[in-house]
Design a protein around this nucleic acid. Structure first.
Lengths: 234, 234
DNA sequence: GATGGGAATTGGTCAAGCCAGTTATTGTAA
DNA sequence: TTACAATAACTGGCTTGACCAATTCCCATC
């Protein structure tokens, strides 16, 4: 209906922020009933502007996760939250999410290899080029990373798989964005990721399913390691 | 404490704006499907700043009243109420679910093969024996089928994957499936399924990942076919 | 010890601007 | 004339910086 097939729409920033904050809450860093850092401070911690954070807070307020009290602060609502129907439930560890992605995307890319249309291949190429030009820009690079994986998932031609891949990607990045964006997803990270993406692309272009699978699994494995290295705790 | 019926506490501006816009929509000034004025212009018309209007628009977007398309404009949603639960997908086709299971479980069983504990293997065996004794009892057989797949998923040692496998099996996203299922359960189908389960089990017992993957994929493929054969329509 | 009154803190709002994606226009070439 | 590619105009996305208003906190005062 309203979903234009083949278009991996980017995620608005406020949604990412909202997920990050939600994650921090579930993780226990902001216990129920406690007060969050001031908007200005929290925005800085998350590496976003205050208006963007405010948009996220409004979304969280509507969802009932937080309560905003003027002049006082932002408080975590204490509610068991009936999130039974939600896709991804409470904080699944990023490590496990990455492993799951390895299994799913690592297999799925074989399907995509066979079904990939030339047009999709072109768009993949464009994504890579754009990423090369944006390895310095965290946010942009991450959005392009997302597009790359979603494009491939779509090409498998199964909406269930597409949804799962999207959910897993978005979930993993909640804790990432949540961290001080200082040194994490910096230069080398995206350069490496790009190189690995290129490997996947080459395999797809060559229509070599096994190679594509291997490349994708390697990419996600290394991506996982990069994350772990930069995130010693937990 | 803060409920004073007489004097409404000052509502946040974005809520007032959201109500105003909603009102304009219902009034017919912005018909369904139409594009409303650009943010800058609309903000000026309403006498508010753009950030405040944007906060309101996010609220409206979450409520499903409006759809925001980057670079294009803000459009009035056609079905204002229908998409209240937009988060939950509106029923994913059983066929696609089975394909997704093929990809996921077909890959995952390779992992499980390596990590499977002897104890889990014993329980798998017990599941199969129980199934053999219950090929005539639909409900029981289905429950055992579920157990078989979930046991394997668990052995992959990843809670994310376990959850996904469970969700897909339970087909939470397809309310129609429950009725269809009744036809799926004639005698032969469970006999066949059991035989295929045995193949998977044998491969797991032999610790042969590739064989296990092949057996699982075959099983799910045939399972899908059995389903489709018994359900010619759609 | 209670209290009153600033000062600091915090959310609420605004203004202006740059960027990026989309759409309409226009001018060229076939 | 028609087709189409380059481009200009428009639109949402996001940021910076500032000021206002409500709340909270601390300390001098009684």
């Amino acid at each position: 209906m309203n979903e234009h097939p083949g278009h991996a729409e980017p995620r608005r920033l406020y949604q990412q922020i909202a997920d990050s904050v939600r994650h921090l809450i579930r993780e226990g860093r902001f216990p129920a009933g406690s007060r969050l850092p001031a908007e200005r401070e929290l925005a800085q911690q998350l590496g976003v502007s205050r208006p963007s954070l405010r948009e996220a807070l409004i979304a969280l307020e509507i969802a009932g996760n937080v309560e905003i009290r003027m002049g006082s602060g932002i408080y975590v609502t204490k509610e068991p939250e009936a999130r039974a129907l939600q896709g991804i439930s409470i904080g699944e560890s990023p490590l496990e999410i990455m492993q799951a992605r390895q299994v799913i995307e690592g297999s799925l890319v074989g399907l995509a290899c066979a079904r990939m249309t030339p047009e999709a291949l072109t768009r993949l190429r464009a994504t890579l080029d754009a990423m090369r030009a944006n390895v310095g820009a965290d946010r942009k690079a991450m959005e392009l990373d997302r597009q790359f994986h979603l494009l491939i998932a779509e090409q498998a031609g199964n909406s269930v798989l597409t949804r799962i891949v999207r959910d897993l990607f978005d979930e993993r990045h909640s804790p990432l964005t949540a961290q001080i964006r200082s040194r994490f997803e910096d230069n080398d990270t995206w350069v490496s990721a790009l190189a690995e993406h290129e490997m996947v692309y080459a395999a797809l272009e060559a229509r070599d399913p096994l190679l594509a699978q291997a490349a994708m699994r390697t990419h996600l494995e290394r991506s996982k390691r990069r994350w772990m290295d930069n995130e010693p705790r937990d």
